[in-house]
């Protein structure tokens, strides 16, 4: 194994770890909220012998539990999609689905910086054959470039589109801190995807061009 390959494998594992850490934290929050709501219901029933709890209160607790169960299901569904992205080296994907998947899984990191990602898919569904895992790593590396260097409270637009026979993801937001390690990851990943990237830190612009559409 060369030193470069070793670093590349490590960055892939770190990416996997970061996503699992963030999403399991979110799932744990869901469980904690459900735990408190069922506990509250039990407390109220015990306190009033079952007679002192209004149906409105029970409805509101039930609504909160259902809201967070739906949130948990959405996180698990997206984590599952992410986990299966390593199944095949090349598979058929829809670009906007992959972008949305990564946005949801990166939400915790974005919220920590009071940042938000705004998706735009003016060309609609763009299907391509590519390495679904490496593409996710490239997208996450772009997200991380904004999150690590920018002041809190900003929006990054993530626009998918077509360019000749390739697919494009264009990120635009505030000025980015230019970090060599992120450029290196992008360089390696985009080379493996048979694509290219543009990184204009001062303009707050990153563009991924992916072959295979």
């Amino acid at each position: 194994m060369t030193e470069n390959n070793g670093r590349h494998d490590r960055s892939q594992l770190q990416f996997f770890g970061k996503i699992v850490a963030a999403t399991t934290h979110e799932i744990n929050n869901v469980l904690s909220i459900v735990n408190e709501n069922t506990g509250l219901l039990a407390d109220l029933l015990a306190a009033g012998g079952g007679k002192g709890v209004s149906s409105e209160k029970i409805d509101s607790i039930n609504e909160s539990i259902n809201k967070h169960l739906d949130r948990g299901k959405e996180i698990i569904k997206n984590l599952n999609l992410f986990a299966h992205s390593v199944d095949q080296e090349v598979s058929g994907i829809d670009l906007e689905d992959v972008v949305e998947n990564m946005m949801l899984l990166s939400q915790r990191y974005a919220r920590q910086k009071k940042a938000s990602f705004k998706p735009e898919h003016p060309d609609g569904k763009i299907s391509l054959q590519t390495d679904a895992f490496l593409l996710r790593l490239a997208i996450f590396t772009c997200f991380s470039s904004y999150l690590s260097g920018c002041e809190p409270g900003y929006e990054v637009t993530v626009r998918t589109g077509k360019q000749d026979r390739s697919a494009v993801i264009a990120f635009s937001g505030p000025e980015i801190k230019d970090e060599a390690d992120k450029r290196e990851i992008l360089s390696q990943v985009m080379e493996n995807l048979g694509g290219s990237f543009e990184f204009e830190a001062s303009q707050g612009h990153i563009k991924l061009v992916i072959a295979g559409s």
Partner: peptide, 8 residues
Amino acid sequence: ELDFANTL
């Protein structure tokens, strides 16, 4: 997590 905090 305000839903957690407020319920607690």
